[in-house]
Simulated assay, not measured.
Amino acid sequence: MKVRIVGIGMGPQHVTPEAAAALRSADYVVAASKGDDDGLLAARREVAAAYGLEVVAVADPERDRADPADYPGAVADWHAARVAAYAEVLGSRGGTAAFLVWGDPSLYDSTIRIVEQLADRLPLTYDVIAGISAPQLLAARHRIVLHPVGQPVHVTTARRLPEAVATGQRNIAVMLTGALDLAGLEDWSIWWGANLGTPSEALVAGTVREVLPEIEAARVRAKAAAGWVMDVYLLRAAP
Rank of each mutant, 00 (worst) to 15 (best):
D36I: 10
A130H: 11
H14N: 10
P148C: 13
R24L: 08
V75A: 08
H154E: 12
A183N: 14
L180C: 08
V55K: 00
W192M: 09
E201C: 10
G178V: 09
A205S: 14
S200N: 06
G91Q: 03
K223P: 00
M230W: 07
T167A: 13
G11V: 01
R143E: 15
S189V: 06
R63H: 13
D127P: 02
G11C: 03
A226H: 10
A130F: 01
T167E: 15
V29A: 04
E186Y: 10
D60G: 05
R44G: 02
Q13C: 06
V128M: 04
E88D: 14
V6C: 01
K223L: 09
E62L: 14
A158H: 06
A59N: 11
P12R: 15
P162Q: 10
D187L: 14
A134W: 00
R93P: 06
V153A: 14
T96N: 09
I215M: 12
R44Y: 05
L122T: 08
G39I: 04
G35C: 11
L53I: 06
Q136S: 15
V30P: 00
L235C: 08
T16M: 02
T157I: 10
Q169A: 13
R141G: 03
L124K: 09
A205F: 05
A139D: 11
G11M: 02
L124A: 07
I112K: 05
D120Q: 12
G178L: 09
D127W: 09
L124I: 15
P72G: 08
E216M: 12
S133L: 06
G39E: 10
F99K: 00
S33M: 09
G39F: 08
R236P: 02
I144Q: 09
Y28L: 06
V89H: 05
A164N: 04
V58M: 07
I129F: 03
S110L: 06
G95H: 08
D36L: 15
R45N: 02
T207M: 10
